[in-house]
């Protein structure tokens, strides 16, 4: 059963998250290269990773009347929230912190990204970044409700908000099997709050990088890192929610968790290039008119199943 890890797990979890993120970046670079027709090579990946020291040493641009406090706060919040959200995710049978409201915690941290990105947008006192911030809020309104109901369906299935219970509830049957809509909506949500791939609208090239337009130096690094960390965290969260977490026939729990996380991550990275960038107002229509009812029905179905099973 999952129980709270010892103190050092607090450090292990972010490390693993970082590793995952790097793998995702590498995969993405290979996909990009392949997409561009070149053979994916370690050099490309290396060059991509060289971005980090470059940004660290770059001279950050200063803007007139920028709200530096809020800007710094915003840029910090995004990666911090990602890291904090992972604390709740159980790795195998052991998680950093086994909160009774782990699911709600993950959701709260995920919503913090809104604040962080809006601040990052507002901070530089520039139009493109502010518009980028607004775009992310609009996109947030779009994906948030279906995502919440997806998480609620998982919680309803397990009749608890504690991730350990959710994993335990998936002993027999993974939730992905009878909550497919929940799983897909979750994946879409992960892409959305990582504003990558189809949901890169806030950082869209039509806005010269949108939120990232004025980010330079460490800010840009943190924001970019934040995106990929959120992608990995989302993938990590999908595992206990829908893929049964550490459950698996042969391998030990943590191995299964790792494998499943890498599988989801690979799926997501693969998907990044496949779907064009979706404008927020179009996605909000899809989300609210199609996905929301579906997830509601999903929650209803799960509730009925739970009642039947418990009643009977």
């Amino acid at each position: 059963m999952v129980e709270a890890g010892r103190w050092w797990t607090v450090l292990l979890a972010p490390a693993l998250l970082l590793a995952g993120a790097l793998l995702a970046v590498a995969a993405d670079t290979c996909a990009a290269a392949q997409h561009a027709g070149r053979r994916p090579s370690l050099g490309a990946v290396g060059r991509r990773l060289l971005e980090v020291p470059r940004l660290l040493t770059a001279q950050p641009r200063t803007l007139p009347a920028a709200d530096r406090l809020l800007w710094r706060l915003g840029v910090l919040i995004v990666p911090a929230a990602a890291v904090l959200s992972v604390l709740v995710v159980p790795f195998g049978h052991r998680g950093v912190a086994d909160l009774s409201v782990g699911l709600v915690w993950f959701n709260a941290m995920e919503v913090l990204t809104w604040a962080g990105l809006w601040l990052a947008g507002w901070g530089p006192n520039s139009v493109f970044s502010l518009v980028g911030g607004y775009r992310f809020v609009a996109q947030g309104l779009a994906y948030e409700l279906p995502l919440m109901f997806a998480l609620i369906s998982a919680a309803t299935g397990a009749q608890s908000l504690r991730l350990a219970d959710i994993v335990a509830a998936q002993q027999g049957l993974w939730f992905v099997v009878w909550m497919p809509v929940g799983f897909l909506v979750h994946l879409a949500g992960v892409l959305a709050f990582a504003f990558l791939g189809p949901f890169a609208y806030p950082a869209g090239h039509d806005l010269a990088g949108g939120v990232l337009a004025e980010a330079s130096g460490v800010d840009r690094l943190l924001l970019q890192a934040g995106r990929w960390l959120w992608l990995t965290a989302g993938a990590a969260m999908a595992v206990p929610l829908f893929l049964g977490g550490g459950n698996g026939p042969v391998l030990p729990a943590w191995a299964w968790s790792l494998l499943k996380t890498l599988a989801v991550l690979g799926l997501l990275v693969y998907g990044l290039r496949r779907v064009p960038v979706v404008r927020a107002d179009r996605y909000v229509e899809l989300a609210w008119v199609v996905l929301l009812p579906l997830t509601l029905v999903q929650v209803l179905a799960v509730a009925l199943v739970v009642l039947v099973r418990q009643g009977g």
Partner: peptide, 21 residues
Amino acid sequence: LPYLGVVTVLMMVMEMVVMAV
């Protein structure tokens, strides 16, 4: 009251972002 605490935080963050708008 963990649940209510986290829910309050969750709601407040969304509200403040909308208020900022």
